[in-house]
Amino acid sequence: MSTSTPFVIEVNELTKHFGSKCALDKVSFTIDQGHTIALVGPNGAGKTTLFSILCGFLRADSGAVRVLGQTPGDSSLFGVLSALPQDAQLDPRFSVGKQLTFYGQLQGLSRVQAQQETARVLEQVDLSNQINAKASELSHGMRKRICIAQALIGKPRIVLLDEATAGLDPINAKAIRTLVADLSKDITFILSSHDLSELERLCDTVLYLEKGELTSHQRYAQNGSDIAFLTLQVKQPDSQMQSHIAQLAGVKQVRQSQPDEFVIEYDAHQNALDIALLELCHHHGWVYKQLINGNTLENQLFATP
């Protein structure tokens, strides 16, 4: 496998049509090793199409795509890139262990190697005790974690997860987030989700798709090296709150992003603005719910100009 490229994934001017519909319109981006990527956008934005092209399931109409220096679908990527669709299902007739062992053998592992991999990935998702259970006997959250275990067979370098925590209870969703965070040192994850707060915890780069066009965002991206942000959430803000905050030393702009939330842009060299802001809340009797160091992903993506 070629190692000349410094990027895990390179996409340049990627375009894909389905009839008259443009699913992807000259999409370009690169992904470095060691980053966890959020792929965000409304339904129909082109996220699944992009995943399918990266996996080699679809061919683009034009543009270039390289995954670890290879063309998607190349045999050298087999077992190196893994993807889990949102609606992936296990066969209810067979045990978890038998199914995962079979999938390991499909990747070219011997039966013994596949059994060892099955034990390893089940331990990673904390479900070793379910190796003999049938999928029909498991909860929805446990089945989802088993599917993620399947995606980890063979120790892939890149894993694409589509709505990995959608519809899960808080315990199973937290278990999956913890797993992704723990493995992100060795695996480049690309996560597609509508849960922006979840992506904000896990990802350092955001790729936002809308109507086939893509904008790249760095998490907590700043307008310049001297600019920083605070996000203040309060209970029952009064009409003078925004103007009072704007008068604090170092504050450049205050924007009310939601009825109970203010985004404060300030001089990054201004020390202890957070303390001054909390003192201001105390002085005026404002009850704050949360003070966030930075600008939320939701506000970055959907801020009103």
Rank of each mutant, 00 (worst) to 15 (best):
L122C: 00
L191Q: 00
R143G: 02
S184A: 11
V180Y: 02
K185C: 08
D186A: 14
L152Q: 09
Q115N: 14
G167C: 03
K144W: 08
A175L: 12
L109K: 11
D162A: 01
L161P: 02
L161H: 02
Q116E: 12
I148M: 08
I153M: 14
E198D: 10
E137F: 14
Q107G: 15
G108C: 08
S197L: 13
S197H: 15
Q124A: 08
G141L: 00
R111C: 05
A164V: 14
A135H: 03
I153R: 04
A135N: 03
S192W: 07
L109W: 10
V112P: 02
A175R: 12
H140I: 11
K185W: 04
A173L: 01
N172C: 02
I187Y: 06
K155Y: 14
Q116K: 14
I146G: 11
V112C: 10
I187Q: 01
I153N: 07
G154H: 06
I153W: 05
S184G: 03
T165N: 06
L160R: 11
P156M: 02
V112E: 11
D169P: 00
L138R: 06
A133I: 09
I153K: 06
R143F: 11
E137S: 15
A175H: 10
Q124N: 05
S128H: 08
L109D: 04
A114E: 01
A151C: 04
R145P: 13
F189M: 08
V180H: 04
L168T: 01
E123V: 01
A119C: 05
L152K: 06
L109A: 07
